[in-house]
Design a protein around this nucleic acid. Sequence first.
DNA 1: TATTGTTATACTCTATAACTATA
DNA 2: TATAGTTATAGAGTATAACAATA
Lengths: 159, 159
Amino acid sequence: MSAQPLDSSEHRSGALLDHLARRMRLRSESVLAPLGLRPRHLVALTVLRDSGGSSQQALASTLEMDSTNIVGLLNDLEAEQLIERRRSPEDRRRHVVELTQDGAKRLNEAECALAGAEDEVLGALAPSERETLYELLRRAASATHVICGEALRADVDNC
Amino acid sequence: MSAQPLDSSEHRSGALLDHLARRMRLRSESVLAPLGLRPRHLVALTVLRDSGGSSQQALASTLEMDSTNIVGLLNDLEAEQLIERRRSPEDRRRHVVELTQDGAKRLNEAECALAGAEDEVLGALAPSERETLYELLRRAASATHVICGEALRADVDNC
DNA sequence: TATTGTTATACTCTATAACTATA
DNA sequence: TATAGTTATAGAGTATAACAATA
């Protein structure tokens, strides 16, 4: 301990981040369950909507998920006809994955439900603070990788 | 869509939170590995230091972890003599868990390593912004449960 | 030969149930 | 009877390896 505590506070945010993310995930799972979706389904749907369609590899890369896990994820969504897989005409190895109308509709509903979950978890923060938090998270996330606000954002005018 | 986009931006922070927490965890795992620790070990050590000792149940409650998982976690730490388990004299069912000197030392080293991981993950944010982020996370986290800044905080004067 | 998607599989994480020793 | 800690175990999540189709 030096005499001057001037700089002082380097705070570790890692554990807090982990803790809060876990709570958010648990609450999100609860509110999404009635819609037959899980949080991971939602991020996939969101990226697909915002990108207007994507290959499975591209999706894996955007979500920083292992591509083998994308398969089952899309199987779920396809079984409920929320997405469609088509072979790409340009490269027949590729699947072009796109949202269906049902998918877009379900996504809207899910986003409304999620807003409720966030209200619970972030209820201690004022709206302006929540906006600040969002902005900080978005910048930190987009700095190191492709996934950024545009892909993970949702404006909800529709609840 | 109504005419006035006034309120507008309700942004979903859930996916961002999850994404960033995952990155932080991965980086933390990397920098902690040489010290023989994992992120979960660190939060346990931190809580034990800040609380000055705790029963395993209390620890489980603070960390919002299942108490059965605390057992293995403490086994790891005890095997490296970073913590001690003693039967409580007042209630011999209870274990009083406390940090050893080695544990306190290892915790310091780990916190320095973690600071590096955070620099990587949050590098896009200015110091003042990181402080703001920390403060928002802390308030959101402490609102709903016991785990709060004091328990998960680490001032590092010692790197 | 490399790449996209797929399957099978192993490994980790977490939670549930049953047991013990104390209260 | 209830509680603290422990063990065994099953389920979910995630990653690795091998394979088929296409480039």
